[in-house]
Design a protein around this nucleic acid. Structure first.
Lengths: 201, 201
DNA sequence: GCCATTTTGGACTTGACAGTCCACTTTTGG
DNA sequence: CCAAAAGTGGACTGTCAAGTCCAAAATGGC
């Protein structure tokens, strides 16, 4: 597989997206390779041609695919946390994104299936968390520069806390189907940032 | 299985705890029933005798078992959030509990394996979250009564946000191995509660 | 001690699914 | 136009694990 022709990349992409779609709809545990083949009108030989390590490699690719989507779906709001209105709009974007996603979280499915062997999956999530946290922290610094947040507050730690709240909110949603916790966590996190200014000027 | 003799309950318990231990050590995806049998010195017929629905029923039982442990491990601190020192001590208990647990979260493993069929698993988690949140909310009300928290704050919503932070912190720990996010979320949540008093006296 | 019930061992069946293989077709580049 | 490389179809195999079954052993009430 030195080079992929246009047709080749298209097929590879079709398999990848088909697998991702199946996982989003039905979870990963029930997904068989044959399911993916049927849905994408491809054959075994193609799947193993583009993903020589089979299922494991495919799942890892899906993890990367989904991780990228997570941040993309929050843009442009996440990259522009420069006013309280912008924060609020980002908050709404996040809630909406996960409400749409429903009870199944593809990334969580895939990583918990790949488990602790295949450290690649954990690396994908870890990197996603770092990037996500960095973007939030940048937003916090913006607001500090604008004098809207206590400058004594550690932006990375604040971002870490906020990010944890989001993750937990989504996790709870996977069981309850409700976004209440996600919303509460985001609102409390943002409220805390806003309140910090009042407490210290 | 109308009645279980003492020997019977002991065997059932041995199977249950053996499965839980395996999952805590190696995750659920790799666990086979034979693994459990080998580890607990039991046979197929015993497993299916005590868990007629086989693997699924066993995993559900493990989920319940682990859910109970989660709250137990936080006692007595969680049930006695009546001073800021007590809150801090609870915070330390939680961090310590999950640091010990390491990167594998049995409950998350099991529920994501059982998936959306077997709604029982989701019900177990949902109930755990409700109980957990209720205990935190009780703590918030205590502090409101003591005049340490803004009485205008909604205890259930505050508890929901704090709980989300914990869940997310643990989830992130599963990938990173670090408890930083968990600690940040707890500290921020508690700080927010404390700060609410100052903002509204 | 005896009968009913529960508990146990482990061989066997069944099915499913990941992964292999090879023959055939299409595309590419010169 | 034609070789070489890339892409494709799908039958086939091997493995592995869940679940079934039955006969034997232990247990418990009377």
């Amino acid at each position: 597989m030195r080079t992929l022709t246009r047709k080749g990349t298209a097929t590879r992409q079709r398999i990848l997206e088909g697998a991702a779609a199946h996982i989003r709809e039905h979870g990963v545990a029930t997904m068989t390779l044959d399911d993916v083949l049927a849905r994408t009108a491809t054959s075994k030989s193609q799947l193993f041609h583009y993903f020589p390590n089979g299922r494991e490699e495919l799942l890892l690719a899906v993890a990367r695919f989904e991780a990228d989507r997570v941040l993309e779906d929050q843009q442009p709001q996440l990259g522009d946390l420069t006013s309280w209105a912008a924060w609020q709009s980002w908050r709404d974007t996040v809630v909406d994104r996960y409400r749409r996603q429903g009870r199944l979280c593809p990334l969580n499915s895939v990583t918990s299936q790949l488990g602790s062997r295949t450290p690649g999956a954990q690396a994908v999530v870890t990197e996603l968390m770092h990037r996500w946290q960095a973007e939030i922290a940048t937003g916090v610094r913006h607001m500090q520069d604008a004098g809207e947040i206590d400058p004594g507050l550690d932006p990375d730690r604040a971002a870490a806390a906020l990010l944890a709240g989001i993750q937990g909110g989504v996790l709870i949603q996977m069981s309850t189907g409700q976004t209440d916790h996600l919303e509460a966590a985001l609102d409390m996190g943002i409220a805390h940032l806003r309140a910090s200014k009042l407490a210290s000027p």
